[in-house]
Amino acid sequence: MAFYMFDVDGVLTDENARPDHDAVKLVEDVAKDGHILSFITGRSREWLSENLFPLFNKELDWSSLYCVAEHGAIKGRGTDISTWKLDDNFVVADDVKASLYDVSKQPEFNDLIEWDHTKESMGTVEAVHGEPGDREHLQNTRKALKEYASNIEAISEESGNKTVVSTYGVDVIHPDLSKKIGAEWIIQEISDEEINEVFVFGDSSGDMIMAVTAREKKLQDITFHWVGEGSAPEEDRIKSVSSSASFSSGTKELLEKHTRS
């Protein structure tokens, strides 16, 4: 039996953060083969419920799907997000969120970034996505995200939090929060299963922590599938495989090799 850990943003979505129906279908094929599936993402549970889960085949049993939202602050199984648990220890204070929100509303960020009101534990802004193929707008949003991250660094540090910049957004989160927490929780939950292989899909260097955590927990035969831009991160005793395309196109390219009859 294989164990799969998927990031969501940039892995199951395209460059405009739209979930890719064909990529989801390949994930379904993995599920049908009886492997253990998990999502470990910075996205909120509300976003997953409204944008990703509606693409799932309702005839399949998703009760065993492991889900970690907001980098590990929220954990649960299945697609009923009301059953997932928020760890209050990882919630950023409301006054800090308010200060971050005020920065996001500065005029230079108009039509480029927006506040994510669905996040429960962190303060997040997301890129305002343009039309598919609008490379100029895409570059402008990426620049705005970097500028926003620079502008709020003092707020983040002085409140004892940390700033995480991703493909589509900027999160201010508890300093101890990372996808390592989510990976550790899932691996503990499946400790009685016989895992022969581990496959991790990610598009940022921070996603490698999922594979590293599997290595630390003594799982074997670990492969990190890189669908990000640039060179894949490298780690001892973890095989890295890169796609020729980025985002969900890269995921489909690599995942088709897992589901091909």
Score class of each variant (00 low, 15 high):
50 E>N: 05
39 F>I: 09
30 V>C: 10
46 E>C: 06
40 I>T: 01
30 V>H: 02
36 I>S: 03
24 V>M: 07
17 A>H: 14
55 L>G: 11
28 E>C: 05
56 F>H: 07
57 N>A: 14
56 F>L: 12
51 N>P: 08
25 K>V: 08
28 E>Y: 04
36 I>H: 01
46 E>L: 14
25 K>A: 12
38 S>D: 09
28 E>P: 06
41 T>I: 13
32 K>F: 02
58 K>L: 09
27 V>F: 01
50 E>G: 00
28 E>R: 04
38 S>F: 01
43 R>Q: 14
46 E>A: 12
44 S>V: 15
19 P>W: 01
38 S>W: 01
46 E>T: 15
37 L>R: 01
35 H>N: 15
62 W>H: 12
43 R>D: 13
25 K>Y: 02
55 L>V: 02
29 D>S: 15
35 H>I: 08
38 S>H: 03
59 E>M: 09
50 E>Y: 00
39 F>A: 12
63 S>P: 13
56 F>M: 09
52 L>W: 05
46 E>Y: 10
29 D>Y: 02
19 P>E: 03
28 E>M: 10
50 E>K: 08
30 V>D: 03
21 H>M: 01
33 D>I: 00
32 K>H: 03
58 K>N: 09
32 K>M: 10
43 R>H: 08
17 A>D: 15
63 S>D: 14
54 P>L: 04
62 W>Q: 08
32 K>Y: 01
53 F>P: 12
43 R>F: 10
18 R>N: 15
51 N>G: 06
19 P>H: 01
40 I>D: 02
57 N>G: 08
37 L>N: 03
40 I>K: 03
19 P>G: 03
25 K>E: 09
54 P>Q: 04
29 D>I: 07
36 I>G: 00
24 V>C: 05
31 A>I: 08
54 P>Y: 00
43 R>Y: 09
51 N>R: 11
36 I>A: 01
34 G>W: 05
58 K>E: 14
36 I>D: 01
51 N>H: 07
23 A>L: 03
30 V>L: 11
28 E>W: 05
51 N>S: 15
33 D>F: 00
60 L>M: 14
46 E>M: 13
52 L>F: 08
35 H>L: 06
35 H>F: 09
31 A>R: 10
32 K>Q: 14
38 S>A: 11
61 D>A: 06
21 H>L: 06
45 R>N: 14
31 A>C: 10
60 L>S: 05
46 E>W: 09
37 L>E: 05
51 N>W: 04
33 D>V: 01
32 K>C: 10
19 P>L: 05
61 D>R: 04
24 V>E: 06
60 L>H: 12
49 S>M: 12
61 D>N: 13
59 E>P: 05
